[in-house]
Each structure stands twice: as C-alpha cells, then as structure tokens.
Design a protein around this nucleic acid. Structure first.
Lengths: 175, 175
DNA sequence: CGACACATGTAACACGTTACATGATTTG
DNA sequence: CAAATCATGTAACGTGTTACATGTGTCG
C-alpha cells in the first residue's frame, strides 16, 4: 500500500475514534524502512504514489504481533486510576469530587458512544463497530469502578495520613 | 518532596503495578523546573536531599488536573481494539484465533489480579487497592468484549473484502 | 478560478524510558 | 568488608506528534 491509503485503511477500521495525522504515516514508514520491515518502490508510480511492501522480517513482525496477546504489563499507565489514587493520598484534595466529576463525564461520553453506535449500526463495517463497542464496554466498566470507589471511600473515611516514608515533608494544602 | 521520596510515594499509591525508574523522576523534575511548575532548593540538605516545591503555576496545574475529567478523546490508542480490528480487515489473518489467544491471556491475568487482591486485601492502603480493582474491572470488561467479538464474528462471516479505497493494492496473504 | 481532496515528504519538539556514573550510608 | 539501599543526576534513544512545504488533479 501507499501512505495515503494506509491512513485511509486505518481510519476506516477504527472510525474517527483516533484521528491519524498523515505526516505520521510517512515518518513511520520511513522508520520502518530504516529497520528493514518494509520496502518501498523508491520511485512514485504514474499517479505519484509510492508503494510499500512488507519484507520477510516485516511479515514475521506482523505475525508475531497478531499471535502475541496484549499483556497487562505492556499496558500504558492508566491516568484515571493514578488520578484517583493521587486524589486519595494527596492532602487537601476532595477525592469525592474528583470521582463525581469523572463519573458525569464518563456517563456523558457513554451516551455519545451509544448514540453513535445507534446511528451507525447498520452502515459501518464490523471492525469499526467493534472498536466502538470496545469503548462502550470500557466506559461502562469505568462507571462501575467509579461507583465502587465511591462506596469504598465512604466506608473508610478521609485521606489516610500521607505515608511520607523516609522523612516527612512539610505538608501544604492544594488548590 | 525530594526525588527518591516521590518515587516511593508513587509506588506506594499504585503498587508494583507500574514500576517507575528513579532516573525518570529526576528528568521529569528537571523538565518541570524548566517549565516553572516546581522549584528546587538547588543545594542538597544535610542528608544530601534536594527538596522540590510546587510553584503557584504548579499548584494551578495540579488543581486543573484534579478537576478536569479524563476524556475519552485524550485516551491513548487502544492497542487491543486496533489489533482485533486489523485482524478482521487483514486478509489471511485468523481473527478467531487472535481473539481466543487474547481471551485466555486476559483470563490468566485476571486470575493473577484476583489472587493478588486476596493476598493484599487487608494490608494495603486504599489507593493501591483501588488501582488493583480498576485493573480487575478493566480485565473483566475486556473478557466480556472479547466474547462479544466472538459472537459478532460467528454471526457475520469471514473478513469482509478489504476496502482498499482509492486503488486496490495487490493482496498478499499474511504470516 | 478558487477551493478542496489527493499525495508525498521534512524539520523539529517533547516526552517516556533506560543505562550508566557517582557517592554516602547502612547492614549482614 | 562487601553488598545493598539511599540519593542524585546525565546522556542518549526512540517514538508520537505536529506544523509546514510542495505539487497534482478535480469540481462547483
């Protein structure tokens, strides 16, 4: 495939969920070629398109990617979880409020996603639909977790005294 | 707080979930100071520790971070969702197998997490427990979604012919 | 004609991350 | 004493991301 087409394919499969800057396709292609995973016909064809192909090493890489599950260790740090954890352990922060703000926001985005799914239910291709539903499932789990936080927090009161382990720093209230 | 302490606090709040290289604390502190969000007492104290404090701008930033919800747009691209979507749209890839491999892996990590939670249920502090439970909730949602993919896929058959939009590229089977 | 989509590319930044260097202090 | 922990820092890399430059073709 050629660069522009790759971007088109990506957005077709994942929808407008994660927009992809075209420039990034080319930088990435260049880096993949540098690493010997793809090879491009240097010259653009009649329509000014430069076709890239997977090398053997590239094929192997892709196959490995498909057969290797995404492990929990490889996952990115979860900003939300960190935020709530920090809200709990940071003196002067109303963790309750943080949870509530997040909850309403997540609920709102859940509505948006559901509406989006309803409107595109028959039209879209499988892949894009599944990606959408993945986000819905995640949002639902997020709400559930936030409610769970709520109950946990009301059960055990305020921020446990900060465990500044080696030497306690002077504590300043936030905001 | 000083660098080493920051790392300690982070790992105390999030557990061994996301290990944090100490070096990164110092690079980050330097960058935050460059941006005027923290200020450090240049000289190390008697114990060789360099204390950093939030500036006014830093306090504002933190407050903003706590009051602003994590929106779905700001979320990182989801590797798993992309992988499944690609497995569906890439000819020559057994999407069914990809889903199954992932499912068993996720189930396994779910077991690990549950075991971990059981073993640390009383000991640990709130924050670390909530982070753990966040991962559990996510893993559960993941399994549910994978099952959902399964049913969706068996309902509608094989990979829909690749929508190489502008000009069809020569199709090569993968692996 | 002017605007827009198609198509390729580059320069540059920021950030996460790691490997490494250095020294003090503690502890088995 | 040797090993581990505490504590600070730096050089370097890779990658995600963007803003910009450039040109062609199409269409109202």
């Amino acid at each position: 495939m050629y660069g522009y087409q790759l971007r088109h394919e990506f957005e077709a499969s994942t929808g407008a969920t994660w927009p992809l800057n075209v420039g990034q396709v080319y930088t990435t292609l260049a880096r993949l070629e540098r690493d010997g995973l793809v090879a491009g016909d240097g010259e653009p064809d009649g329509d000014g398109r430069v076709t890239y192909r997977l090398t053997d090493a590239g094929h192997a890489d892709v196959a490995r990617w498909f057969t290797t599950p995404v492990t929990r260790e490889r996952r990115q740090r979860d900003e939300l979880a960190i935020k709530i954890a920090m809200a709990l352990t940071t003196p002067g922060v109303d963790a309750h409020a943080v949870v509530q703000t997040q909850r309403t926001a997540t609920l709102r985005s859940l509505q948006d996603l559901t509406r989006l799914k309803a409107s595109a239910d028959d039209v879209a291709d499988q892949a894009w639909l599944l990606v959408l539903e993945s986000m819905i499932f995640q949002a639902e789990a997020e709400v559930r977790w936030l409610d769970h936080c709520e109950t946990r927090m009301t059960a055990a009161p305020g921020p446990a005294a900060p465990a500044s382990v080696p030497a306690p720093a002077t504590e300043e209230a936030l905001s």
